[in-house]
Amino acid sequence: MAFDPVTDYPLGRRRPELVRTPSGTPLEAVTLDAAREGRLVASDMRATAETLRLQAEVARAAGRAQLAEGLERAAELTGLDDDELLAVYTALRPSRSTAAELEEWAARLDNRGAGRNAAFVREALGAYRERSLLADV
């Protein structure tokens, strides 16, 4: 059955079969019994990019375009580890990066399939250039 972002929320209640962990465990198999039997892994207990994209659809259908975009950026970021996330965040802080460094981050994000975030970084670069928020070369 196709996903309907208006009627299928909450996913966990209405469409649990659409929700899986990153390793493919169905939502309904995430139980205390499964944990007891050692069938669950801590690092697998998180939302996938696909799930976050479904949530973005829900947000968009509810008229929340910016929240949807934020969730789409989040979906892309599921593939980055904490250190990478924090490195990009730090690079975006005021006067931390040169134009070349921000462009380099954008390129890396593009290579990681994070095109929306890459565009977001490039957009920041443009604003920072105008507002003197880039680091001195």
């Binding site: 969730l71 950026r73 989040a74 965040y89 975006l92 802080r93 005021p94 957009e123 920041a124």
Partner: peptide, 15 residues
């Protein structure tokens, strides 16, 4: 921070 850094952090948390 800038609005871009904070918005990025928000998406990082959501991820």
């Amino acid at each position: 921070d800038t609005p871009w850094s904070k918005a990025f952090l928000a998406s990082a948390y959501a991820s």
